[in-house]
């Protein structure tokens, strides 16, 4: 554990708190993509199956349970809550996320480090996480003015990915035999997807106006 990894995890946690806060406090999920949230739920389930048979640390196990719980809570609110579900902008959330799931599964079957059931599912979760933000980014473009909490949620998610890259650089330079090419390549692609959003987020923040993605 290093400071970049810890900061990354805490930023990830904070992003989920911000999103849950928006949904619970405003009783609205306007501008939030249910498809991205469902993809994250799939990512966490397939990656954290190892809760059942591998223990790394109490920290890891607790975080895994928290991430799983928050992902399912968010999906629950967006799909089933009697008030919140009516605020979901279904017509703006039209990305075909099933293609992302299918593509990630095919890639995981082709490129993995060990051809076992759990390893392929874990690799699938890495590929799917890399692209899971796409429905949300497309939805932001279609939403007019993006509220602060939604904008901050996506910004924090992007920060979390950036901090993970710093964590890998740190680990590579300090640990022996630390090498995880699948995770690195996927993570760099994932972070690059935020570049456009970051540009407009910082530009609007600098000019002190409401976030709009052209």
């Amino acid at each position: 554990m290093n400071v970049f990894r810890l900061a990354g995890d805490l930023t990830h946690l904070l992003s989920l708190v911000v999103l849950l806060l928006k949904i619970v406090a405003t009783k609205s999920c306007r501008g939030v993509s249910a498809k991205t949230q469902e993809l994250y739920a799939i990512v966490f389930v397939t990656r954290y199956l190892d809760l059942l048979f591998s223990f790394v640390s109490l920290y890891n196990s607790v975080m895994k349970v928290v991430f799983l719980g928050s992902a399912f809570s968010i999906v629950y609110f967006m799909r089933y809550h009697k008030v919140v579900r009516h605020t979901y902008d279904r017509e703006l959330d039209t990305f075909r996320s099933s293609f992302l799931v299918a593509g990630s599964m095919v890639l995981a079957l082709l490129i993995n480090s060990k051809y076992t059931f759990f390893e392929v599912l874990w690799t699938f979760s890495i590929y799917l996480e890399a692209v899971a933000i796409l429905p949300q980014l497309v939805m932001l473009q279609r939403t007019g003015n993006i509220d602060n909490l939604t904008g901050n949620y996506v910004f924090l998610l992007g920060m979390y990915r950036g901090l993970y890259i710093l964590n890998w650089i740190y680990r590579y330079s300090t640990e022996r035999r630390y090498w995880q090419m699948i995770v690195w390549v996927s993570g760099i692609i994932q972070t690059a997807l935020y570049a456009d959003f970051f540009y407009y987020y910082l530009k609007c923040w600098n000019e002190n106006r409401t976030l709009v993605i052209p």
């Binding site: 890891n60 964590n167 035999r177 630390y178 090498w179």
Partner: peptide
């Protein structure tokens, strides 16, 4: 170098 078999990150 080989892929680490331990998944110790989140």
């Amino acid at each position: 170098n080989s892929q680490s078999s331990v998944h110790d990150e989140l």
